[in-house]
Design a protein around this nucleic acid. Structure first.
Lengths: 147, 147
DNA sequence: GCTTGACCCTGTAACGATTACAAGGTTTAG
DNA sequence: CTAAACCTTGTAATCGTTACAGGGTCAAGC
């Protein structure tokens, strides 16, 4: 006797909004679920687990594409595990690069914050810095940082 | 005798693509420049400096909205400098939060990477972790991390 | 003269993941 | 019976940048 859940209940159980669940379905991370009498999506326990998988992957910062690859590996239990390890390692490397970049930015920013106490913007250290300082790299799009 | 530059030269001098420059104009960060004979945008030195300002702000990770606020402050030299300091401080705080979050993710990821040596995905530690592990926070959208 | 390539113009769509609608139908509680 | 809360679909917004399409202008080389 399998319990089934409508999308709203799945949402509150997984912490994943109904919109996102439908989105994952459209992207192919979730198989189209069965439909109830009124055409409502109906999810079983396995689907819940799969959504939890996606959710936890997201909470680790993995993108949906990587998660899709991991799900595909998980669907084929006989595959070599190296591929999964590669995805995680690649992401960890990516995270470490990003942390380093953000730390560098934070350091740069700490040098200018609180430098102009109660003055006028004409003499503001922050604004002066932005005008004068040369970014390290002037290549196209280089140095742009998300967040 | 003021030199003027077309958008392509501005691009190579500032490291900012022509598309981005036009984008900044559309968003109101740059005033619409003078136009040459064929309708080509024509930038003077002040515009170059302003684009450099934007560029450096972006390289520090500021969003365009914050940069616009800083530009507005810079355009009114008599304004109190506190506002600029607030923007920078807020951003620094934001950066530090993000660094902490990413470090936490990286730590979590380091625990699972390289745990499954040459096995099959059926026993893969990474995939098991994604299935089993409960994210700390199951609130809507909580725990999602960009990058 | 005529072609080729490098510029410039405008407007629109893509990226990634999510959210927010609109406009409709259904269930549930008071 | 009615109002709120749910479900359906599709589309558009967010952010900053890039990539087109479809067109115009100009200089160098043949």
């Amino acid at each position: 006797m399998k319990r089934h859940y409508r999308i709203g209940e799945v949402a509150s159980r997984t912490g994943c909004s109904p919109e996102s669940i439908r989105h994952y379905e459209k992207l192919g991370l979730l198989a189209p679920p069965q439909r109830g009498e009124q055409g409502y999506r109906s999810y079983d326990q396995a689907a819940l687990a799969r959504i939890g998988f996606i959710r936890h992957g997201r909470s680790l910062g993995l993108d949906l594409h990587s998660i899709q690859e991991l799900l595909a590996l998980s669907d084929n239990p006989d595959t070599d595990c190296t591929a999964a390890d590669d995805i995680a390692s690649r992401h960890l490397e990516h995270l470490e690069e990003r942390i380093a970049a953000l730390q560098s930015l934070a350091g740069e920013l700490r040098q200018v914050v609180h430098q102009c106490r109660g003055g006028k913007t004409a003499n503001c250290q922050i604004i002066q810095t932005l005008y004068n300082h040369q970014p390290a790299c002037t290549e196209r799009g280089c140095g742009d940082v998300k967040a």
